[in-house]
């Protein structure tokens, strides 16, 4: 019995290992066609789903005037998610045609996919979210850890954690219909944009960031604070000179962890970013992020398009894996 129990628990634990490796391998395998086709240029290429003609003599790709069309197509796809079946078929046919033509080696056009727009969109929304959430989250953390009397800190703490528990899709809907109009009135531009998506994302990571920052601050030993107060320091000085330096590493870790969360968030952003593969010129322009590109295009994608989405997923997975590892194993470990 003892042996069986031990084996069972060991295999469950190993499952984590298998899953994580499995996710990586699966994403890589599925992304392989796109990786082979586009290589690392994928990361710097802003064109998604664009037809280019291959000029056999000069080897330079001449852009067929398809940009407008494919863009329109994109937008129609968005609106008609339910009845996109015909579109689906159309895309399928297109891909198959490409393949056949490629094989026959007298291809005139092919579809290329580049990931620059969603990558930029992801990074920018995350940055905006962080810039917005960071000061407020720090303020809340200080309030909860140091300022509020215990019972108030408890109540506010629970409220903040409830805010963290609200499903992200709710943030998206609320953001789109109630928050974005106000923001676009204030700053101009579209209601769906980098800015509104980033801000709603900020509201979403706010409680998470505040809660873990508070936990980091709470690790400061009371004796340390008390000896500073005993010297006549003000609360601000104690926080600035004792608590922040003491819990600095943990706080940085918390921020990075929140950043990791924000990078991979799908639903809150999906409502607000506009979901078009166009590089934003202004902060108030619509664009797309990696999770949103996946959420909105996976269903209709096939062939190279699907593979390119997996390529994006792989990039997102690696980035967030790296960021979370840094946060957890460098900063938060060191903090403890």
């Amino acid at each position: 019995m003892e042996k069986i129990f031990q084996k069972l628990s060991l295999s469950s634990a190993s499952l984590v290992f298998v899953l994580l490796i499995g996710i990586f391998i699966t994403l890589y395998t599925a992304a392989k066609p796109a990786i082979d086709e586009f290589g690392f240029d994928f990361v710097t290429n802003p064109d998604w789903n664009k037809e280019v003609s291959l000029n056999p003599t000069s080897l330079t790709d001449t852009v067929v005037d398809m940009e407008e069309d494919s863009l329109d197509g994109e937008i129609i796809d968005e609106d008609d998610m339910e009845i996109a079946d015909e579109d689906d078929d159309a895309i399928l046919d297109e891909d198959e045609d490409d393949m056949m033509l490629d094989d026959e080696d007298d291809a005139v056009t092919k579809t290329i996919y580049g990931g620059l727009v969603p990558i930029i969109g992801t990074l920018l929304t995350t940055l905006i979210a962080l810039a917005f959430a960071l000061p407020i989250a720090m303020g809340i953390a200080v309030f909860l850890a140091e300022i509020a009397p215990k019972n108030i800190a408890n109540v506010v703490g629970i409220a903040i954690e409830l805010l963290a528990a609200i499903p992200s899709i709710i943030f998206g809907m609320w953001g789109l219909y109630y928050f974005a109009p106000i923001i676009s009135d204030l700053f101009g531009g579209y209601q769906v944009s980098l800015l509104t998506a980033g801000l709603v994302l900020g509201v979403m990571v706010l409680p998470f960031m505040a809660a873990i920052t508070r936990d980091s601050m709470n690790t400061t030993p009371n004796v340390l604070k008390e000896s500073a107060y005993a010297l006549g320091a003000t609360k601000f000085e104690v926080i600035k000179d004792i608590i922040f330096p003491f819990s600095k590493v943990g706080i940085i870790g918390s921020i990075i962890l929140a950043l990791g969360r924000a990078l991979g968030e799908t639903m809150a952003v999906a409502f607000l970013i506009g979901s078009i593969f166009v590089l934003p010129q202004k902060i108030t322009d619509p664009t797309i992020s990696i999770p949103v590109a996946m959420a909105n295009n996976f269903g209709e994608a096939s062939g190279l398009g699907e593979s390119a989405l997996f390529y994006l997923a792989l990039i997102l997975f690696i980035i967030s894996f790296a960021i979370i590892s840094i946060a957890k194993f460098y900063f938060l470990k060191k903090a403890n």
Partner: peptide, 25 residues
């Protein structure tokens, strides 16, 4: 310890990526 760390990382893995993984497998 490795399993604990990996599980910690998995906890923060983007949920859409897990969707894509299950889609593929």
């Amino acid at each position: 310890n490795i399993i604990r760390d990996l599980s910690d990382i998995m906890m923060s893995a983007p949920s859409i990526v897990i969707g894509a993984f299950v889609y593929a497998v």
